[in-house]
Design a protein around this nucleic acid. Structure first.
Lengths: 227, 227
DNA sequence: GGGATGAATTGACTTGGGTCAATTCAGATG
DNA sequence: CATCTGAATTGACCCAAGTCAATTCATCCC
């Protein structure tokens, strides 16, 4: 595989001249992981960051008694683990694969010196971090200001959006993981899905969900309507 | 006032040569705000960002029924409102002064072109955003995985830390605002402060709090101990 | 096909923390 | 000094969502 080639298709590296791409490729390391393996853990010193090529990775926090809060789920093309690269300290959360995955790893010092020589790489990275800050504000808003039905409604609408706005939505993670992403537990998620069905807002069959009353979901997500 | 001079003391601009500082000063605009005035609102297009020179600013989200969740409280030297600069879209949250405040405003396009010419400015900004990402992971962890006593304990320890680890801590915001920062309401905060006092963990008198049992607070914050 | 294993669902119960309302307290102002 | 106004506290009550336990369901593999 030509690494330089595939790097060019990654949003973070958009607009870079070919020689820079091959510079990148020359410092990159390919890493492969089995499903459910740890990529890094919170508190570890980070000496580089990753860009996912294939598979899926979750970034999450853990409470002492084992409850998990997922911060992000990343797919191909998305970078993760950058915080320690620019801030110097350790990883602020855990990273684990959801599927067999392949990532490129960029060592910190080499990458920083590349960034110094390439302003548009720096700006791309600034855009990535800014986007991530925005998603965090949404997550905080959900956790603190919405209740679980609202979070779930928002998530279903989000999935629908990313499927060309279709009414048919396929959950791409287990219900247990979805619960952890929404800041709740499987039991609660299960109950609320069935309440949404009883209300006629959705039709639910395993991982497949059909949106029947989009407006109702929107109002739930906005916090205007209560379930 | 020599703007260039004061800019040099801001962490974001550390290590910049004098001519770059005066470039910065030349695109900067000084803005003054009264206490409790809106600097920007969520959803507004952002055409630049701010660095606070004096006063205090809160960044917050609002629910439809008016409940507020504070994301950050910034003091002198701290930049805010950068997300739209690099990501292009609108402000992800509201910004309002807590006191009479002065800020420098940097218009987006001019600032970006400066960053293009100065890698260390870019790296400083990457460090700022990375640090902010870390604080968000902490906030999410608190909101989702800790209960209110734990969040409060963590906050008291944080305040103690930033006062050379003294046992005497002064709340620098109103209890109402503290509640909003901790993701709760004043009534609950009040009750929990008094429970902490009854337990002998703290002594509380208005805005002054004395830490009596640091270990207990640490264990509360860790989620090991329950109140 | 038939266990076996983990995921998901359902029920009964508990509880943290929110709502609403009533005081009390404290700082600002005339 | 008296009063006013918003902040903070306290009490009674309620409810969303968590815990614990028991099934049920689905998938995989022999």
């Amino acid at each position: 595989m030509d690494i330089g080639q595939s790097l060019g298709e990654i949003a973070l590296f958009k607009g870079l001249p070919d020689d820079q791409l091959s510079d990148l490729a020359s410092i990159a390391l390919i890493k492969r992981y089995h499903r459910l393996s740890t990529i890094f853990s919170e508190g570890e010193p980070g000496s580089g960051f990753y860009v996912l090529l294939a598979g899926r990775v979750k970034i999450f926090k853990l409470s002492p008694d084992g409850k998990e809060q997922i911060l992000h789920i990343f797919g191909p093309g998305e970078p993760f683990g950058e915080v320690p690269v620019f801030e110097g300290r350790s990883f602020p959360a855990h990273a684990e694969t959801l599927e067999n995955s392949t990532a490129v790893y960029f060592p910190r010092t080499e990458f920083v010196s590349l960034i110094k020589r390439n302003p548009s790489l720096a700006l791309n990275m600034l855009a990535v971090l800014s986007r991530r800050l925005r998603t965090f504000t949404v997550l905080v808003d959900n956790l603190s200001l919405k209740e679980v039905p609202g979070r779930l409604a928002a998530h279903l609408l989000y999935l629908s959006q990313h499927n060309q706005g279709t009414e048919n939505v396929e959950l791409d993670i287990s219900k247990g993981q979805l619960a952890s992403l929404l800041g709740t537990i499987p039991e609660t998620l299960s109950r609320i899905l069935s309440r949404l069905s009883k209300q006629g807002y959705i039709e639910s069959d395993g991982r497949h969900i059909r949106i029947l009353d989009r407006t109702a979901l929107e109002e739930l997500a906005e916090g205007i309507r209560r379930l």
